[in-house]
Amino acid sequence: MQVVSLRSDAHAESDPLSGRKPASAMIEIEHVSQRFQTSGKQSHLALSDINLTIEDGAFVSILGPSGCGKSTLLYIVGGFVQPTDGVAKVKGKAITGPGPDRGPVFQEFALFPWKNVLGNVMYGLRQQGVKKAEAEARGRKLLEMVGLKGYENFYPKELSGGMKQRVAIARTLAYDPAVLLMDEPFGALDAHTRTRLQNDLLDIWDRQRKTVLFVTHSVEEAVYLSDKVIVMSRSPGSIKEIVDIDLPRPRKRADLLLDARFQKYIVDIEKMIDDGGKDDL
């Protein structure tokens, strides 16, 4: 079992010297376990006693080998999957199902193919009863923000993978969730598109400072984007280590690639994941 606080100033109730408010917990995961029924009477422990606190406004990545339960953990926070044991909370309230305070972005985009780009982005707002004109204005603004001005009337099938994911991000940002849940969002994109979307995501995050929970396979991506990287191991899925990424922001990819600290984080984390691999042999 591992209890981890992601507060950098965990000792201080408040910090009168800096005048900063202590960051409050956005997501708390307490003793969460997830068991999946496999064929017959067999069952598989996907997550074992996970404890984690994620502060408001933090960008946190979850890294780990396939099958370590990192996506499952994200789905539990999203309320899409109910944990077998334990409780996950958002803003102190137990999560019982999906809600507009937590917006998912999936690797598969999951756009509504019968709606055009603008229709997709407006969808959440319209469902929540926002007036059409207002939703449209908001949608156009968001599309401009994700670099898709001029594509309002395109249908998803007419877009490239990178553009689809931009639409998906705008669609989720539209209803202004406090938490972004990103499930390997750039996993299906080519390297060049991936880099551009990472940079744009960082820009958006710098402006909005939403709490982000970001699942990825890529160590480099995790280090580049995050304040904290949670390294998981599998069988059963558990938290192996939490690494604070102490790199200044705003981050520039070109600078970081030459930065020894950035490189060291990557090497260290890759080693942690490798050690996990040896356990399986």
Partner: peptide
Amino acid sequence: VEEKMLWSGAAMGMSAPMRMLRIVLPAAL
């Protein structure tokens, strides 16, 4: 119908009958 599409709808606050009418129906059309 893609599960994640329904999850996206649920996160927008759509109830199960709403998802049926506004996501499953058009997606299966």
